[in-house]
């Protein structure tokens, strides 16, 4: 039996399979090494980094919702310097391609972080999280305004040769406008979706549950929204897509690829089933074998035919 070709091309980046772990759900790669060898993955995406360390929001930071969860971690991270000196050497040991997720509150923040990422390490791409509030623009997210989004990518592009992934927020009226903007700005790859803004209230205390009041919705509940956005962006923009949002099984992953994703990211599902990413890798191969495909990339975008 000939093995199924699982390799994936994302712009200049080749991954041995299309399954990635999503930023913020996989720490810096070490925790899940207790369950399986992370080098089985196509790549791992690390928690969003900011120039300076951040203590993040007060607890509670997570709350369950119907078939999903809200999180308001508030970008807690060790900061750029600590990331480079402590986290990166440890990531190197995992023998897995690493995508670094960067977040900033000004254009300078993004420029600084892009420039600081070594081009000869396990880091294979920089994912630009544009869901953060733009301090200069009064806190409006970079990612909800096409001009700011384009500008962030343009500035980041100038400071690194690594492939650039623009990670889009779904909290917009028209995702295609944003996708076109980041493509113009110089993104090589688009990843979608980040979390959907939501909140929950405790009916006993009559107060919002999250310390930050609002948080980002993820998990199976958001899957159809994410599939729809991948479908729309695939139709409108020529860049490869990393699809994510509620992927828990190989069937979910196939659905995203049919919609147009060249790769998929697994986030919240890690919390429920730590083996989800490797089960998905195996499931993709099984599906292709059953359906008569020799390479998984053959199914990308088939729902558009």
């Amino acid at each position: 039996m000939k093995p199924i070709d699982l390799t994936t091309q994302l712009a200049g980046l080749t991954l041995k399979n299309p399954v990635i772990t999503a930023s913020g759900t996989y720490g810096f790669g070490e925790e899940y090494a207790a369950f399986y060898d992370p080098s089985r993955l196509g790549a791992i995406t690390v928690k969003g980094i900011t120039p300076l360390p951040r203590r993040g929001n007060p607890p509670p930071r997570v709350v369950e919702t119907p078939a999903g969860m809200l999180n308001a971690v508030g970008l807690e991270n060790p900061g750029l310097e600590e990331f480079l000196t402590t986290c990166l050497p440890r990531l190197e040991k995992l023998k897995t391609p690493v995508i670094v997720n960067i977040s900033g509150f000004s254009l300078d923040d993004y420029a600084l972080m892009a420039a600081a990422m070594p081009e000869d390490s396990c880091i294979v791409a920089v994912e630009v999280n544009i869901s953060c509030p733009n301090i200069k623009q009064g806190g409006l997210a970079f990612g909800t305004d096409p001009r700011s989004a384009e500008e962030v990518l343009r500035v980041t592009r100038k400071h690194t040769k690594l492939p650039l992934i623009a990670k889009l927020t779904p909290n917009v009226t028209d995702i295609v406008t944003l996708a076109k903007a980041v493509a113009n700005g110089g993104a090589d790859i688009i990843s979608l979706i980040n979390t959907l803004l939501g909140m929950r209230i405790d009916i006993k205390t009559r107060k919002p549950i999250l310390g930050n009041i609002m948080g980002g919705l993820s998990g199976p509940a958001v899957l159809p929204v994410a599939v729809r956005m991948v479908y729309q962006v695939y139709k409108a923009v020529r860049l490869p897509i990393i699809g994510m949002g509620g992927i828990s099984t190989w069937q979910d992953a196939i659905e995203f690829m049919l919609a147009g994703a060249s790769a998929v990211s697994v986030g919240t599902a890690n919390f429920v089933n730590p083996l989800a990413p490797v089960e998905i890798i195996d499931g993709l191969a099984g599906y292709c074998r059953q359906a008569g495909f020799t390479a998984v990339r053959e199914i990308v975008g088939l729902a558009h035919q």
Binding site: G24, R55, P58, P59, V62, V63, N71, N270, F271
Partner: peptide
């Protein structure tokens, strides 16, 4: 504390 991953990966369950 409320938890998601339970293994240290999500930073959902912190204290100070």
């Amino acid at each position: 504390e409320r938890m998601a991953c339970g293994v240290g990966a999500c930073l959902g369950c912190v204290c100070l």
